[in-house]
Every structure is written in structure tokens, then in C-alpha cells.
Computed example of a mutant assay.
Amino acid sequence: MEITERSTRLADQFKAHSVSWAEGIDVFGFGPRLAAVMDELTAIIGDEVPVLASGLLARNVDHDKLELDESGKIVWPDLPNLYDVILVTDRFIIITWGHLPAGATDHERETTSVWARKNISQVTVNLAPGQERRPGDVATHHELVLNFVDGSELQIPNAEEDLTPVGITALSGLIPEFYGDMSA
């Protein structure tokens, strides 16, 4: 299967696991802008099938270009302008993020990091479904912190309440696998 076909399947999986990615692709038409992101990820994972494809498409304020309205409130972008990806396969955990500049047809990738799941040294479950996140806000899915043998850590997912029911199930199923991946 060629990269383009695998990339299309991966984009579909992001839509299935992430509310904001589904909106970004289906409502805002960001599929072509994010195709290069999908191509990079499929080149890294090869034929592996992702277990979790999550992330966030968000409206972010570029603090170097902060705009305020007449009343002094921040002017937020009309469209999402930041993407964030967490991709988990049986062997890898990958994060990548970058910008979707207004008026551009492509993205500006900031960084991509890849960890081997076999190098997980600690799994911390910070929140479970039903636990109070803050007064009046109850979590719908797990929130984890993975520590790796090199001292780095990763929060999964990296967005509050952006997982779809399919994504929630995928993340929940990964927790016992992550425990099993921990290095001795």
C-alpha cells in the first residue's frame, strides 16, 4: 500500500478519535493542508496500524502578534491555526505539532518526537472517566503521563475532552498495554 493511501486511512483514524480533527477536516477542509503531516507519520510507522490517533486542532494566539479589540480583549483566530498529534502504535509513540498560518495552503511543522514504547519507565493515571477535573467539570476519558527511561515525559492525550467515544475506548485499552511496556 502506498503512502498516500495509508495517509488517507490515518487521517480517517484521526477523525474517528478526535473531535477537533474531525471538525478541522470535515468542516474547515484542512485535509489537504494536513496531508504532509499524515505522510510524515506514515513514513515513520510504515505498515503498523495505529492504536490511538489523537491530537488537537486549536485556535491559538501567536503572542508575537497578539491583537486586542477595542475593549482590550484578545482577538482569537477565526479558524484553527495550531495542530498537535499523538500517535500510538504497537511499537512507537509519536508527537508532532505545528502551525496552520492564515491564508496558507500548507502547514509549518515545529517538531516531531518518536519514543519506543519499550522505553516506558512509568505510567501515571492522573484522571479517570468520571473524576472531577475541576469544580463542575468531570473527565470523560483517562489522562496519563508516560515517563521514559531517558527522563522525558509525555501527557496523553494532550487536550481536555477532545477524544471521541472511539478515541476514549482506544486510550482506555492502551493503559494495561502501557503497564506491560514498562522497562524493568
Rank of each mutant, 00 (worst) to 15 (best):
L56D: 10
T140C: 09
R33D: 03
D69P: 09
S113W: 12
E177V: 15
A43W: 05
N147A: 15
R109S: 14
V145Y: 06
V123Y: 10
L79T: 10
A36Y: 06
N126P: 00
K118G: 11
N119H: 12
I175E: 01
L171V: 07
D181W: 15
V37H: 03
S71D: 13
H63N: 02
I94R: 00
V88K: 00
I93E: 13
V138C: 03
T96M: 14
I74K: 09
R117K: 14
A170D: 04
I45H: 07
V19T: 05
T111E: 13
V123H: 04
E153D: 11
G46H: 07
A53D: 07
G98Q: 06
W76M: 12
G136P: 08
S18Q: 07
N81V: 04
S152V: 03
E67T: 06
L100T: 13
W115N: 02
A104F: 06
V114F: 06
E110R: 08
R91Y: 15
N81K: 04
W21C: 00
E132G: 07
P157Q: 13
G31C: 03
A184D: 09
N126G: 14
S183L: 10
P176F: 04
L79E: 14
P135L: 15
D106V: 02
I93W: 15
V123L: 14
V27P: 01
L79M: 13
T42D: 11
V27E: 15
I94L: 01
L87I: 06
R59W: 02
A170Y: 04
L82W: 14
I45N: 09
Y83W: 07
S20L: 04
A159L: 02
T164W: 03
E5F: 08
M182S: 01
H99T: 13
R133D: 10
L174P: 00
E132K: 08
E177F: 14
S121C: 05
A36R: 06
V138N: 03
A104C: 09
S113Q: 14
F148I: 13
T8I: 09
A159N: 10
G130N: 08
G98H: 08
R133F: 14
V123F: 01
P157R: 11
N119L: 13
R59H: 08
E177H: 13
W115P: 00
D84C: 01
V19M: 05
R117G: 10
P32C: 10
P165E: 15
E132N: 12
W115D: 03
H17L: 13
I94H: 00
L154I: 06
K73N: 14
R59V: 00
H63Q: 05
Q131Y: 07
G173W: 07
A104G: 04
G24V: 04
S71Y: 06
G72I: 05
E23C: 07
W97T: 09
T8P: 00
D84Y: 05
G46Y: 11
T112N: 05
E48R: 10
L174K: 00
T4F: 05
L82G: 05
E110K: 11
T89G: 02
D39C: 02
G151T: 02
A35Q: 11
Q131V: 07
R134F: 06
Q131W: 14
A102L: 13
P176W: 11
P50H: 07
D64V: 02
T169G: 06
T105I: 03
V19I: 11
P135G: 06
D47N: 09
D150L: 02
L154D: 03
D39N: 07
E177N: 08
F178T: 05
